[in-house]
Structure formats: structure tokens, C-alpha cells
């Protein structure tokens, strides 16, 4: 009696709906595989793929280097894109209540420390992923609730004006590359 091997649901979906996969190399040389639907969420990557003329046949043989994003951020981004690749486009807000809901899965994904979150925002901005940008900014924006200016400065890692001035002074005092 033969027993059919269990096939992960993700793979079944991929085979059934779209087998095209692309390879992405992060700035620290980590390689990621991402499906076509997922990569379309990034305007930058999709434009790149279109311009390079990558097809289903040659996609895996031509990895795409992304110099501005490290492996850690790329991992989060790939997870996010794979999760949201079949999301329908959100309708414009026309209703009486304009409510922004951050799904629990995404909240968990973005439960990282603030500095990493800022770096993820920069990466997301570079890759132009609107939804992830909105979610990251929401998490950062939510941190401001009911905080004093001093607490906000610490949460957001902002130096005081005095520290800022000192940094600027030391930067201007130090000899430049030519000096």
C-alpha cells in the first residue's frame, strides 16, 4: 500500500497558480527565492525584472542583486510579499469611518527593535512596497501615542539638539578626506 507524501500547501499553490520563481541576492550575499506574484508587490524589483527581460525559463539562472538591502531585511520583505501576494487591491477610503487595521500576522512580523524597523523602512522605500511601507510607518506612528517629547526622543533614537550640535561641530572640526 502506497502512502502519498504530504505536500506543503504553499508549494501546491505555487505549482497550481504560478511556478515562476526569481532569485534575489542581498547586499551581504544571501540568496532568496521569491514567486512572481510576490515580487510584483515591489515596484522596483518588478521594473528591474521587466527591464532585464527575465522569463520563466531564465529567471532562476539570473539572480537579481539588491545592493541596498541586507539579508535580514530582505528575509522580512520576502516573507511579507509571499504572505500578501494574493491580496486584493484595497478600495479607496470613501466611507464614514476611515479605519486602518494592521493585521496580527504583520504586527508579529514587525515586532522587531526600532532601529531594525527604521532600516526596514529604508529598504521598503528603496524597493517601493507600498503596503509594507504603510504597515511599518503605522507601527512607528503608533509608538508616539501618549508619550512625552523626552520619551519620543528615546523611542525614536533622536539625539538632543545639544548632542546634534556637538556632532555637527566635531564633524566640521575633523579633517575631511582631502585634509
Amino acid at each position: 500500500m502506497s502512502v502519498e507524501p504530504e505536500v506543503p500547501i504553499v508549494q501546491v499553490e505555487e505549482v497550481r497558480e504560478n511556478p515562476v520563481l526569481y532569485k534575489i541576492i542581498s547586499s551581504d550575499n544571501h540568496v532568496f527565492t521569491i514567486s512572481e506574484h510576490a515580487v510584483k508587490l515591489s515596484k522596483t524589483l518588478w521594473d528591474l525584472i521587466t527591464n532585464l527581460g527575465l522569463t520563466a525559463e531564465n529567471a532562476l539562472d539570473n539572480p537579481i542583486p539588491v545592493e541596498n538591502v541586507n539579508g535580514k531585511n530582505m528575509e522580512t520583505i520576502v516573507q511579507f510579499c509571499e504572505r500578501h501576494k494574493y491580496d486584493e487591491e484595497e478600495p479607496e477610503y470613501t466611507n464614514y469611518i476611515r479605519e486602518f487595521v494592521l493585521p496580527e500576522w504583520d504586527r508579529q512580523l514587525l515586532s522587531i527593535d526600532n532601529e531594525e524597523l527604521f532600516q526596514l523602512i529604508l529598504a521598503t522605500n528603496y524597493l517601493d512596497i507600498q503596503k509594507l511601507m504603510d504597515y511599518c510607518c503605522r507601527v512607528i506612528g503608533d509608538m508616539a501615542k501618549d508619550k512625552t517629547p523626552e520619551e519620543l526622543r528615546i523611542i525614536y533614537g533622536i539625539p538632543t539638539d545639544a548632542e546634534d550640535d556637538a556632532l555637527e561641530r566635531s564633524a566640521s572640526d575633523s579633517p575631511g578626506p582631502s585634509g
Partner: peptide, 15 residues
């Protein structure tokens, strides 16, 4: 004033 943690990337580095 307490010092903020030194982030390589902070809010003010955002575009």
C-alpha cells in the same frame, strides 16, 4: 536629559 540610544538609523534619517 537622558541620552537616546545611539541608533545607526533613527527617525531623522528617514527620507
Amino acid at each position: 536629559r537622558p541620552k537616546a540610544p545611539k541608533y545607526d538609523t533613527n527617525l531623522m534619517d528617514m527620507p
